[in-house]
Each structure stands twice: as structure tokens, then as C-alpha cells.
Design a protein around this nucleic acid. Structure first.
Length: 263
DNA sequence: AACTCGTGGAT
DNA sequence: TATCCAAGAGT
């Protein structure tokens, strides 16, 4: 549960499942993950994206061993204190795994509430305090109802009230939807600019890290140069990866995933 | 508050 | 083909 929530951060759930199955088979407990070096977590993360999440998940496992007896904590504050755990993940784990009726606000919930209650096509670019307050107000006070509400709103956003082409004819709350009542107006305000990709540091970091994930022995500079030819950008990104703890520099200009044993 | 951080399926 | 955008978090 904890692992799947972290994997699902900014990553489609369908793509998480196979990696999650492999991960849980290898590391069924926080202690098992904590006993392996962080580089193994980065390697097992595969191509899920945002590999710093793998590092934080490993750190979280070690924190659970140190502070929580090797268990996933149940208290919201304890969850929030773990690396890689923000407001969404803490609420989701406490609510879905432990039945604590916190308000779970993810991108789906934000979009559903924006349409159904506020009447706008899309939620704000980033989560606002107003959105959190709106969700808290909208959630039923009864515990069982609150748990069901969280699941229902999130599912509605994931399956019906989708971002691109919502299936309004099939929506169970269409009759009371503020956005429908307003005539389903298009998004107002400036269009959010898409994420650039070609030639970005993100692409470069991804290319370098893929080489290291696939390698069973330390990687040399020429091999990294083949993966990303631009010397200045390669050096900058490699430094960044090292600073992030995703790459471990060895002697003689060789590199590996942190802590991984090589032969 | 605004940026940064991967990857790939869907449209 | 290009764009969108995913059960966000950290700085």
C-alpha cells in the first residue's frame, strides 16, 4: 500500500502494477528494503520515472526500521515526516490502509471538485489551501461515509471525470455538477505550458541513469558520453545525480548506482 | 510561489 | 506527429 502510493505519484497506476509486484516479492517488508543498498532500489525502480522517489522510498524504509519498529506508521504526522511522503500520500495511506477519515486530495479529486462544486473545467496548476479546505468541507463527517467519499471521488475523477475528454453522459452527479450547469465552459486563464523534453536536463539525467541501471559493472566516462554526448550538460547532470544520491562516483572516473556491489 | 524532477500511453 | 498529463514532493 505504502509502496504503491509512492510509485503512483505522477505515474499512471497501470504502469505501476508490474513494478510493484516485482518490488514487493523482493522486499516484502520495510526491513528487507532497508537492508539493501539504495542503488538496488533505484535499479528496481526501472523506468517508472522520477527516480528520486526510489531513493526516498528506501530512506522511508530505513526510517520505519529506526523509528517505527519496521512497520508503516499509522499516524498522519508520522507518515508526513517520512521522506517522499506529502499531504496526498500521508492522507491516502492513513485513510485507505488504516481507515482514518482524512481528506485525500489528489489530481483526480481536485479536478472533480473544480467541476462539480466550483464550476471550472480544470483545477489550479498547483494545490491551494482553498482546494484543501473545499475538499474538507465537502467530505461527509461520518467516518464510514468519509472513507467511501474519498474512494468514490477519486475513482470518479480517474474513470469518468477525466482531464481530457470527460464522460459526462455517464456521470452519476451530472445533474448537480456546477460545470455542467454553467454550460461546460472551456478552461479559463493562461494555458499551462507543456513540459519541454528534448535536450533538457531531465532527458539527460534519464539517459545517464538508464545506462547505470542496465550496467552490472561500474560505468566509465566514455560509456556515459555515448549516452549523452554534450560534455557540459553531461557533467552538470552527473554532478546533479551524484548530489541527489542517485549515482556514486568511484575512482578512475567510474560510476555506479549507490552502494551496489559490482564484479 | 515557481521550478524542478522521468517516462510512456493516449489522443 | 505533437501535445497532454499521470492516485506529487521537495526546495
Amino acid at each position: 500500500m505504502f509502496v504503491s502510493e509512492v510509485m503512483a505519484q505522477q505515474t499512471p497506476v497501470a504502469r505501476v502494477e508490474p513494478v510493484w509486484l516485482t518490488w514487493m516479492a523482493r522486499w516484502p517488508t520495510p526491513a528487507a528494503l532497508a537492508a539493501d543498498p539504495p542503488g538496488e532500489a533505484v535499479r528496481a525502480w526501472g523506468r517508472l520515472g522520477y527516480p528520486r522517489r526510489a531513493l526516498r522510498l528506501h530512506e522511508a524504509a530505513r526510517a520505519m526500521v529506526q523509528r517505527h519498529g519496521g512497520q508503516v506508521p499509522t499516524q498522519h504526522a508520522d507518515l508526513l515526516a517520512l521522506p517522499g511522503v506529502g499531504s496526498y500520500t500521508a492522507a491516502a495511506v492513513a485513510c485507505f490502509a488504516h481507515g482514518i477519515p482524512l481528506t485525500v486530495v489528489d489530481t483526480n479529486v481536485r479536478r472533480v471538485l473544480a467541476r462539480a462544486l466550483t464550476g471550472t473545467a480544470l483545477a489550479a496548476p498547483a494545490l491551494t489551501t482553498a482546494e484543501t479546505a473545499l475538499a474538507t468541507t465537502a467530505m461527509p463527517t461520518d467516518r464510514e461515509d468519509a472513507l467511501l467519499w474519498n474512494v468514490a471521488v477519486m475513482e470518479l475523477g480517474a474513470l469518468v471525470c477525466t482531464a481530457r475528454t470527460p464522460h459526462c453522459p455517464a456521470c452519476p452527479i451530472r445533474a448537480t455538477c456546477a460545470w455542467q450547469a454553467a454550460g461546460a465552459p472551456p478552461p479559463s486563464g493562461p494555458a499551462r505550458r507543456g513540459q519541454a523534453w528534448d535536450g533538457t536536463d531531465r532527458q539527460a539525467r534519464g539517459a545517464l541513469l538508464q545506462v547505470l541501471r542496465d550496467a552490472t559493472t561500474p560505468v566509465t566516462e566514455p560509456t556515459l558520453a555515448a549516452a549523452w554526448p554534450d560534455p557540459a550538460q553531461r557533467a552538470r547532470c552527473l554532478d546533479g545525480l551524484i548530489a541527489d544520491g542517485l549515482v556514486e562516483p568511484l575512482s578512475k572516473g567510474r560510476y555506479r548506482l549507490p552502494g551496489t556491489t559490482t564484479h
